[in-house]
Simulated scan of single mutants.
Amino acid sequence: MADGDAAGGPALAGGVGVDEGQAAIEARGLSVGYGRVPVLHGVDLTVRPGEVVALLGPNGAGKTTLLRALAGYLRPTAGTIALFGQPCGRMPVYRRCRRGLSFMGEERHIFPGLTVRQSLRLVRAQEGALDLFPALADRGRHRGALLSGGEQQMLALTLALARGPRLLLIDELSLGLAPLVRERLLDTVRATADRGVGVLLVEQNARSVLRRADRAYVLRRGELVREGPADEWLSDLDGLASLYLS
């Protein structure tokens, strides 16, 4: 993908070509802090096109800090980040977005004063964007601020996918949402990866996210302590819980 908008306008996720042999994003020896306070220490992490990677760990482990550093909102104090094979440690956020990165933070990234359809027009979403979440189709004339929490998060994910990203970073996708909404959102994330998009996802419900993930990392006190296939974690949830508590 060129370092600019694709010709012919944006598309939903899956409308881009990917090189499965190249990492979507890769961090090596990454350390990040706030001022003089270190948070991450020597993190090594890789996300490839077409896979969902879960980032697990207790509160305060540094998961949000890691996502924000990968997205470009925080500058590393040591180590390297490569986005689709290109070093990007000093690349500003807007250039990472142009190269195919989309970031969903804990805050629901919607336009509260705009209707659902106005929001989609603003990001130049293609026709059929609401097919991702049919529940939103009947809410097209409602302002974002008047949607339920689940509907707001559906809209936020739709907007994140509207420009056809090659890499999606998501922080706490289902925080505070009903189980049925959580499962629908996670199914959409899995389907997005199946179309070639790399996904790195922070999610507190480990069982639900591991059912859709390919691999998982566990972050504790700013360090990655384990990494492995998602099905292995699912078969040892007690062992996973012990890493949270130790």
Rank of each mutant, 00 (worst) to 15 (best):
Y34V: 05
P112C: 13
Y73E: 10
G29E: 07
A206T: 07
G42R: 11
D3K: 08
L210M: 13
A178S: 14
A213H: 01
L12S: 09
A7Y: 09
G42A: 04
E183T: 05
A82D: 15
V181T: 13
R108S: 02
P87L: 14
A6L: 15
S31G: 13
R163M: 04
L157W: 03
L201I: 15
R98P: 06
G50C: 13
D44W: 08
V189S: 05
G228T: 03
T115H: 09
G57H: 05
A137Y: 10
V37C: 02
L67P: 05
D138G: 10
I170A: 07
R108E: 09
S174N: 06
V47W: 12
E172R: 06
L56H: 00
G198C: 08
L147F: 04
R190H: 04
T188I: 14
G17V: 11
F133Y: 02
K63T: 06
H109K: 14
M154H: 12
R117V: 11
V225F: 05
T115N: 00
Q152M: 12
G144M: 00
S102R: 00
N59S: 05
L56Y: 07
E106N: 11
E151G: 08
M1D: 08
G100K: 02
L173D: 10
Q22A: 15
L101S: 05
G239S: 09
P87F: 11
L224M: 09
G42L: 01
A6I: 15
G50P: 00
V116W: 09
A54S: 04
F133L: 05
R68M: 14
P38A: 03
R226F: 12
L240A: 04
V18M: 09
G57P: 00
L173M: 12
A69W: 08
L147W: 08
L159N: 06
A193T: 12
F103E: 11
P134I: 09
F111A: 03
D194L: 12
S246K: 03
P92T: 01
L56F: 07
E107W: 03
G222V: 08
L130Y: 10
A71V: 06
R184S: 08
D19F: 09
L169Y: 01
E227K: 06
G72P: 00
R108L: 07
L167W: 14
P229N: 04
T158M: 08
G164V: 06
G29H: 00
Q204S: 13
N205G: 06
L180R: 13
Y217N: 08
Q126E: 14
R166K: 11
T115C: 02
A61P: 05
N205E: 10
Q126F: 00
P38Y: 12
G29D: 01
Q152K: 14
A82Y: 06
S235G: 10
L240V: 12
Y73F: 15
G62P: 07
